[in-house]
Amino acid sequence: TGIVNVSSSLNVRSSASTSSKVIGSLSGNTKVTIVGEEGAFYKIEYKGSHGYVAAEYI
C-alpha cells in the first residue's frame, strides 16, 4: 500500500512507460494497493484492473 504524493493529480497509465496511454488519474493523498514494480513504475490495483504510476510519486 502506498499514498499518492502529489499536489494536483497523478496519471495512471496502461503500461510502465511515460509514452503509454493515460487511463485515468489519482488525486494527492489517495491510498493505492501496489501489486508489482517495473522499473520506475509501480503496478497498482485500479478500477477492478491494473494500472501503472510513477514510483517517485508514491
Results as ranks from 00 to 15, higher is better:
E56V: 10
A40S: 10
A40T: 09
V4P: 04
V4C: 07
I44G: 02
L10F: 03
V35G: 01
V12T: 01
S7L: 11
G36I: 04
A16V: 05
G48Y: 05
V12F: 00
F41W: 14
G48C: 07
E37G: 07
K21G: 08
K21C: 10
S8A: 10
G36D: 08
K43A: 05
S17K: 07
G28H: 14
I34K: 01
S49H: 10
L26K: 00
Y42M: 07
E45W: 09
G24V: 03
G51H: 01
I44V: 06
Y57K: 08
I58C: 03
T1K: 09
S20N: 02
K47E: 13
A55D: 02
S27I: 11
T18N: 14
V53T: 01
S20K: 02
K47A: 12
E37C: 15
S14M: 13
K47S: 08
E38K: 06
S17Y: 05
S49E: 09
R13H: 15
R13M: 15
V35D: 02
K31A: 10
E38N: 06
I3C: 13
G36V: 04
V6W: 06
E56I: 13
E38T: 07
I23P: 00
N29T: 07
R13W: 15
N29H: 12
E38R: 06
L10N: 02
H50V: 14
K43S: 03
K47R: 09
A54E: 15
S19E: 12
I58T: 02
I44N: 01
I34W: 04
S19A: 10
S8W: 12
S15L: 09
E38P: 01
K31E: 10
T1F: 14
E56T: 07
K43V: 11
L26N: 00
V4K: 04
L10I: 15
S20D: 03
I3D: 04
I44K: 00
V35S: 04
V6D: 05
Y42I: 09
S27W: 09
L26C: 04
T33V: 13
N11S: 13
V32M: 03
K21P: 14
S7C: 15
G24Q: 02
S27A: 14
G51K: 01
T1P: 08
L10S: 03
S8P: 13
S27M: 13
E38S: 08
S49I: 12
S8C: 15
V12L: 02
Y57F: 13
S25N: 10
G51E: 01
S15F: 08
Y52I: 00
V4Q: 04
L26R: 01
T18A: 13
I44F: 01
Y46G: 00
K31D: 04
S7K: 14
V12N: 01
L26V: 09
H50M: 09
S9M: 11
A40G: 14
S15A: 14
I23W: 02
Y57A: 09
G2W: 08
V22K: 06
T18D: 13
S14I: 14
G2I: 08
S25Q: 14
A54V: 13
S7D: 11
T18M: 14
K21T: 12
R13Q: 11
N5H: 09
L10V: 15
T30Y: 06
T18G: 12
S20Q: 02
I58R: 00
E45G: 03
V53W: 00
K43Y: 07
S9L: 10
S9I: 11
Y52A: 00
S17T: 09
A55M: 15
Y46S: 00
S20H: 04
G36C: 09
Y46A: 00
S17C: 09
Y52E: 00
T30E: 12
T18P: 14
F41L: 02
H50F: 15
H50K: 04
T33E: 06
I34Q: 00
G36S: 09
T18E: 13
S25C: 15
E45P: 04
N11T: 13
Y52R: 00
Y46E: 01
F41K: 01
G28E: 09
G51R: 01
E37S: 14
S9Y: 11
K21W: 07
G2V: 08
V35N: 03
S7V: 12
E56G: 07
